[in-house]
Nucleic acid binder design. Structure first.
Lengths: 133, 133
DNA sequence: CTTGACTCCGTACCATACTACGTGTATTAT
DNA sequence: ATAATACACGTAGTATGGTACGGAGTCAAG
């Protein structure tokens, strides 16, 4: 199992060293093992965790929400019913996001097709039709 | 066609009045018509636009990206090829977002199923398995 | 025709999520 | 062995996206 210093894992994931320390402070990352020199030691699990944080952020989750996602597991302390309830809530949220992204996707595809067919130009903004609330 | 003052449209969409002025400053909203009193007048198109901004933000688009999405249209100034290129780029991005959200979705569903079946508990964090970069 | 709610604008402040800086210690390449 | 990097830590600064404030003008119900 490979080990990393903070700079190496930062490089690997493509985020800043300072950001990793920041996530640790927010408890998005567990306290890492240390060398005697106090240097932090990371492993593959930390790498996965950081990659997840990075992408989830891009997908519109806040750091607080990401922390909640990490908490979704059936462990000795969490009752199954609680986890299930929370998870179902998250699932509904994710489904809504996917649904709305598909609406945006549909309009983008339509726009590309219009270009190909060299249809009439328009000063209207087609993206506005994508999401009706 | 119904018209709104800023407070009414803000109420309708569920955002702050100040935020609307802020979006106007950033040119996410066109300059609205005014009464002689200088009061801003909005219509249904503005309402759609604001709803879109609100949701797109929740889906992880920055205000800058949202502005770009609004710009995706075939008008008298934009050459079709340019728009097509840009739009294809956005489409790829949206597809990736949908794909990764589906991975997260899959893990959430699995977690709920585990609960139902009262399977073994674990101290592992299952969400970590959802996105492999 | 007044009173309360709404709007105007500029400016200042706020929360989230970083990012940089400085000082000191550790590691590593030559 | 020594110089260039890298890391530790605390603190301060930045960017984005709002949110609040205050004084003046506007609207509209009684």
């Amino acid at each position: 199992m490979s080990e990393y210093f903070v700079g190496q894992i930062a490089e690997e994931v493509g985020i800043n060293v300072e950001t990793i320390r920041y996530y640790e402070k927010l408890k998005l990352l567990p306290k890492p093992k240390r060398r005697e020199s106090r240097y932090r030691i990371y492993d593959e699990t930390d790498l996965k965790r950081l990659s997840f944080i990075k992408r989830a952020k891009e997908l519109g989750f806040t750091l607080k929400e990401i922390k909640e996602l990490f908490g979704l597991k059936i462990d000795s302390d969490a009752r199954c019913g609680d986890v299930k309830h929370l998870t179902e809530h998250k699932l509904k949220d994710v489904d809504n996001r996917i649904s709305d992204l598909k609406k945006i996707r549909h309009v983008l595809v339509k726009l590309i097709t219009q270009c190909v067919n060299e249809e009439v130009s328009s000063d209207e903004c087609p993206i506005l039709e994508s999401i009706e609330i």
